[in-house]
Simulated assay, not measured.
Amino acid sequence: MQTYTIRPAEPHDLTAITDIYNEAVIRGGASADLEPVSRQARLAWVESHQPRDRYPVVVIDVVDPATGTRTTAGFGSLSKFHQRAGYDGVTELSYYIAGAYHRQGLGRAMVQWLLDAARDRGFTHAAAIIYADNAGSIALMRRFGFTRFGLLQGAVTSGDGRLHDMSYWVRLLR
């Protein structure tokens, strides 16, 4: 049984964050980016989470008990939902787990951490935008009591040229 820890992302995590994100881009169905992104682009994304004590970027590390090897298996964040100040009570959560670690409970652990962090920071709502055909993430949203409040049909193209529906989810935190 492997153990995990969730901790604030540090500069040395940028390569893992970029690699995990790009794996999701290539796999499809988790990002609207059509091509892998550069480390510089991911750095700009990390740095956009300001102030960091309100909008954290975190990583989830897995430790193999047999070897003691620590591997960054995913990352997540709380982001500004909208630039207008009236929306400051709403945060958007996002998370990415490396494919080798899917279906091991790490996504569930990350979403729980992000929801707890959102509550601790005084947010009133958490929102997520998910490909409507991403069954794993949809199941996770339902598990945590999110409600789908919108669907943009055929809104996002994928690398193969197909159009995908995007679903919008929200959970009241108070």
Rank of each mutant, 00 (worst) to 15 (best):
Q2N: 14
Q2I: 10
R7N: 04
P8E: 04
A9Y: 10
E10F: 07
P11T: 01
P11F: 01
A16Y: 04
I17M: 03
T18E: 00
D19K: 08
N22S: 06
N22D: 06
E23S: 11
V25E: 05
V25G: 08
R27N: 04
G28Y: 09
A30T: 01
S31R: 01
S31L: 06
A32S: 12
D33S: 11
D33G: 02
D33L: 09
D33I: 03
E35N: 14
V37L: 05
V37W: 08
R39S: 15
A41L: 08
R42G: 05
L43A: 12
W45D: 07
P51Y: 00
D53N: 15
D53K: 07
V58H: 02
V59I: 13
D61V: 14
V62N: 09
T67G: 13
T67N: 11
G68W: 00
T72P: 06
S77R: 11
L78P: 05
L78V: 02
L78Y: 02
S79F: 00
Q83E: 10
Q83P: 10
Y87W: 15
D88A: 09
I97R: 04
A98C: 01
Y101A: 08
H102Y: 11
Q104I: 11
R108G: 05
A109H: 02
M110N: 00
V111L: 14
Q112F: 02
L114G: 12
L114A: 13
L114C: 13
L115F: 00
R119P: 06
D120I: 03
R121K: 10
T124W: 13
T124R: 15
A126M: 08
A126L: 03
A127M: 08
I129T: 09
Y131Q: 05
A132F: 00
A132W: 04
A132P: 11
N134L: 01
G136F: 03
R142Q: 11
R143E: 12
T147I: 12
R148F: 01
R148Y: 01
F149M: 00
L151P: 11
L152S: 10
Q153Y: 10
G154M: 00
A155C: 03
A155K: 13
A155M: 11
T157Y: 08
S158E: 13
G159N: 14
D160V: 03
G161Y: 10
G161F: 09
H164Q: 10
M166A: 09
M166Y: 04
R171T: 11
R171V: 14
R171S: 01
